[in-house]
């Protein structure tokens, strides 16, 4: 068997340390980003325990003064102060972006799995889920949101118990819209993955006396869902970005807030750079998270190492 490990060459050690420095920077940036978000959110929920609601966590004036004292970046001090000043609004919008994405993804998953299963194993139901996925994937998401919001006026049907959760009912409309749409895309990824589960696995399940449904639940899905993780991560990432379409039905999420501030201050470039970086941070978090999940649930011989 594999025996003694060869000592690392200098070049390998340098590459390793480069990689670990890069990792460290990424982790630090992630911690800073999520720390800022969570503290901002908690501060707002608790009615401004740290700083008055709506104020940045650090005073912009102090940031400007500090940076101005550092030669080389002094020229950017005013811009930095401006970014700090708008940070509470960005944090506030990001909250809705995160909530809408997460809720739609999770609820959508529980719709997508039966859709995918019926697509593969159903008879009549296969046609129903085919029709559903094609309809939702074949029409523009924005049009779907408009139908739900302006056409059906879904917001007016939100029950009282749910009404209080968000400041506006239209958030629920967005969650419903992204859930229904995302479920169709997720179903496609999951369908592909469960189709790649070998036929013999099902035969073996049936042969020990599991029903078809039990075989799907205990044998096919645990394997198929693992195969689905990489492509499913794409849907996660897309949804983070697509959630900005909620702005068009007046959901005050990240993009909506950014757009609002930009049209008030006319500082479009800076604001959309900050917004872009925020989306990027969310996307990176999502893909890192899913990488973690993937390696956490990985099984020897399943998935990546499956191809000989």
């Amino acid at each position: 068997m594999a025996g003694a490990t060869r000592p690392a060459t200098v070049r390998e050690r340098v590459a390793d340390s480069d990689r670990s420095v890069g990792r460290l920077l990424l982790v630090a940036a992630g911690a800073l980003f999520w720390g800022w978000l969570v503290v901002s959110w908690v501060n707002r929920w608790l009615g401004g325990v740290l700083v008055p609601v709506g104020d940045p966590l650090v005073p912009p004036g102090a940031v400007e003064a500090t940076l101005a004292a550092i030669p080389g970046i002094a020229a950017y001090a005013a811009d930095a102060a401006f970014v700090v000043e708008l940070s509470p609004e960005i944090a506030r919008g990001t909250w809705l972006t995160v909530v809408i994405t997460a809720a739609s993804l999770v609820v959508g998953f529980f719709i997508a799995v039966p859709l995918a299963v019926t697509r593969v194993y159903g008879r009549f139901s296969a046609w129903v889920s085919l029709a559903y996925t094609e309809l939702l994937r074949g029409t523009p998401l924005l049009a779907q949101l408009f139908v739900l919001h302006y056409g059906l006026n879904l917001g007016s049907y939100v029950p009282d118990t749910l009404s209080g959760v968000f400041a506006r009912n239209v958030v629920w409309v967005a969650i419903v819209g992204f859930t229904l749409n995302g479920a169709a895309y997720q179903a496609e990824y999951i369908r592909g993955a469960i189709e790649s589960v070998e036929e013999g696995q099902i035969t073996a399940g049936r042969a020990i006396g599991l029903s078809k449904l039990e075989t799907i639940y205990y044998v096919v899905l645990p394997q198929g869902l693992r195969y689905a993780i990489p492509s499913w991560t794409n849907e996660f990432v897309y949804l983070i970005k697509y959630s900005s379409l909620a702005a068009f039905i007046t959901v005050p999420e990240l993009y909506y807030r950014a757009d609002q501030i930009a049209s008030e201050t006319f500082r479009y470039t800076l604001i959309f750079i900050v917004t872009g970086v925020t989306y990027l941070a969310l996307v990176l978090t999502a893909s890192k998270l899913m990488e973690r999940v993937e390696s956490r649930v990985s099984i020897p011989g399943l998935g990546v190492d499956r191809e000989r």
Binding site: A204, Y218, G301
Partner: peptide, 29 residues
């Protein structure tokens, strides 16, 4: 399914459940 509880089958290609350990494979039924 009642029939198959009483009639075991062993396959040419083994058809072990790829996501389960040896014990998991045997314990599932």
């Amino acid at each position: 399914n009642d029939l198959r509880r009483e009639v075991g089958m062993v396959f040419q290609g083994f058809n072990l459940f790829a996501h389960l350990t040896a014990v998991g494979n045997v314990a599932l039924g």
